[in-house]
Design a protein around this nucleic acid. Sequence first.
DNA 1: ACTATATGTCCAC
DNA 2: TGGACCTATAGTC
Length: 347
Amino acid sequence: MPEGHTIHRLAAAFDAGFAGQRVRLSSPQGRFETEARRLDGQVLLDVEAVGKHLLLALGPEANLDPLAGSPAVSFVHVHLGLYGSWTFAGDEGFAAAHAIGAPRRRVGETEHAVDDGDAEAGDWRRIVPRETVRLRITGAHGLADLTGPTACEVYDAEQRAALLARLGPDPLRADADPERLFDRVRRSRTGIGALLMNQDVIAGVGNIYRAEALFRARLDPFVPGRDLSRGMVEGIWEDLVPLLAYGARTGRIVTTEPEHRDIEARIIERSRGTRQNGDEDPGVVPREKSFYVYHRHTLPCRLCGTIVRSADVAGRTVFWCPRCQSVRTRRAPWSREHDASAWAYAD
DNA sequence: ACTATATGTCCAC
DNA sequence: TGGACCTATAGTC
């Protein structure tokens, strides 16, 4: 269940584990069999993440430029949707190459083991794929199994270009143009909460980053985009960049500032005027302390204690604090709080 | 064994 | 706006 940070992490894993290699493609499940057969044995020329989309460029020769427009180059386009996942297995070097602080055998989101069949310990070449594996990619030092994707298809260069042109700026891409986000938001009557989930407006943000970014901006999800100042939208963008980067680096979404992680301590602190030492294991923030509002409906807000609300917006649940996120003005009185360097996630 | 749930998207009405 | 789709897992009976 990935947002953009996961896809960029996956791209890094493919790059480290397979790029430049001749790879085998197969489709144990069968639904990608024709395509896998056609591309089997080609060279993985390039790996690219755009928002929640992964693109694997393949060609018959290693020295092809994937972006030069050669018809020999194909792009495997994968979108994980809600349920898709990649499961990795490989030798020591392969695992170490892609697992940036992640579990050794996998980089995808769902924690399921590869079906080992009768594989002897350590021999990833003998791992039998699950029947649901849509695509298996095998390289010299490891393999990756794809299950449950919303999309797994072959694009040509034009289709790839059309995808990139359609998507809004991706906070994790160096070539992102946030002007487009500012324009789209400030022209729209749609609520900012819905806009942030629209991949044509901004690519890679999902339900967690949406809810959390709006809390950090102290912004009501239902405020129309056109009511926001440019500075406010810039602030959201500048906050999302380090937030997503942290997620891509660690594989975990953490949006709470350290001093806000222990709501009970904060309530005591406020009522008694004492300060508790809230230190915890540095490095790993437990899930229940990672978010301000996501999945925290019916629980008290970490900052003000008001019960966090939830509502269905276009089929997805949005979470927000009705007190902290109640501002409905065109100016951003809190805009200086958006100095990204003040947040713990600034690189 | 069954059910509910999930960080997503598309299409028909 | 509602349903379809793709799959694994945690919880319940």
